[in-house]
């Protein structure tokens, strides 16, 4: 095992910090930070799932927030009908997300490049309008989750428990993505990203590998949605508004695409930046928008890239 580089150390420090958030928040009586970091941890899981297809697979899916929405609505609708069993809700969320991802992926992966971007966006918008049209479940206004999911051994009522569950899910997602990316499957996916024709020529059905990656990512993302619905006690179509999908892409790119810890760095940076900027001015997006443009123009590798550069300079 080689020694940790700058990004390894940063990731380790960040994860240790995340583990320590609930006791720290309690000691300093800053409940706000517990809530903020719960959101960070949940969104990191979503960003990790997007990174699988966007970063490693090169598929610019502009509809990823849809799966967060599917997970959230699985909780909202089942609890509306009196079903609060967390495992059942989780299974339902993952199953629906997997089917949706399979159907959408099967159609949109037939296309490439900008068509793919527009089509994933359009399908996500379609699901968004379906949610808006669900007048029984609140339509545009959304639906309150009256009781949080109950997992038998533990419930999610206590904010600290919810936080640690979300953190455990996030770490599991990190581990899973590490295992996947370094497996044969992951190698094919990455190979298809850099040269699809060559991968096809040496005998891989790249379409099927892409589709499998697409489905795994969507299913993983739905878990984040289940947690998000429990966290905010509320689900609404706004969860899957297309700008939320844009935010997810920003998180992944800000952190560094196609790197293991990129989504973690990116989500932490994105949500903290949002917090800081909106503290300065209500119109924080007027700063954030141009900042995003600058990021695209000048810091292409994201935070992970900056850390990696630092390491190289240190070595050389």
């Amino acid at each position: 095992m080689k020694s940790l580089d700058a990004r390894g150390w940063t990731a380790l420090a960040l994860i240790l910090l995340l583990v320590a958030v609930p006791p720290l928040a309690r000691t300093f009586d800053q409940n706000f930070y517990l809530l903020l970091f719960t959101r960070v941890v949940i969104m990191t899981t979503a960003a990790i799932s997007l990174n699988l297809i966007l970063g490693y697979g090169g598929m610019v899916s502009f509809g990823h927030a849809m799966y967060v929405g599917i997970g959230a609505y699985a909780v909202g609708i089942s609890s509306f009908h009196g079903l609060n069993d967390g495992w059942a809700q989780m299974a339902l969320a993952m199953a629906v997300a997997a089917v949706a991802a399979l159907a959408i992926g099967a159609m949109s992966l037939r296309t490439k490049g900008v068509y793919f971007i527009m089509i994933t966006l359009a399908f996500a918008q379609m699901i968004y309008f379906v949610a808006v049209g669900l007048s029984r479940y609140g339509g545009d206004d959304g639906l309150t989750v009256k009781r949080r999911s109950d997992f038998g051994l533990f419930g999610l009522k206590d904010p600290a428990v919810l936080y640690y569950v979300a953190l455990a899910v996030m770490l599991a997602a990190l581990w899973l993505s590490w295992r996947m990316v370094n497996s044969r499957f992951g190698l094919v996916l990455r190979g298809a990203k850099s040269n699809d024709r060559r991968m096809a020529a040496i005998g891989f059905a790249t379409y099927r590998y892409r589709l499998a990656g697409f489905v795994v990512a969507g299913t993983m993302c739905a878990v984040a949605g289940v947690l998000l619905a429990n966290f905010s006690d509320f689900v609404s179509p706004a969860t899957m508004h297309w700008t939320r999908s844009g935010d997810l892409i920003v998180m992944v790119v800000l952190g560094g695409m196609g790197s293991l810890f990129g989504p973690l760095f990116g989500t932490v940076a994105f949500l903290l930046l949002e917090e800081v900027l909106s503290g300065i001015t209500e119109a924080w997006q007027i700063i954030f928008g141009p900042l995003l443009l600058a990021l695209v123009l000048y810091a292409r590798g994201g935070i992970d890239g900056l850390l990696a550069k630092r390491t190289e300079r240190g070595d050389g």
């Binding site: 610019v60 892409i249 920003v250 790119v253 997006q285 954030f288 928008g289 900042l291 995003l292 695209v296």
Partner: peptide, 16 residues
């Protein structure tokens, strides 16, 4: 992807 991100930034800017 860069186009999408950069122009997404522009949308945020113009809305605000």
């Amino acid at each position: 992807l860069d186009h999408v991100l950069g122009t997404f930034g522009l949308i945020l800017f113009f809305n605000e």
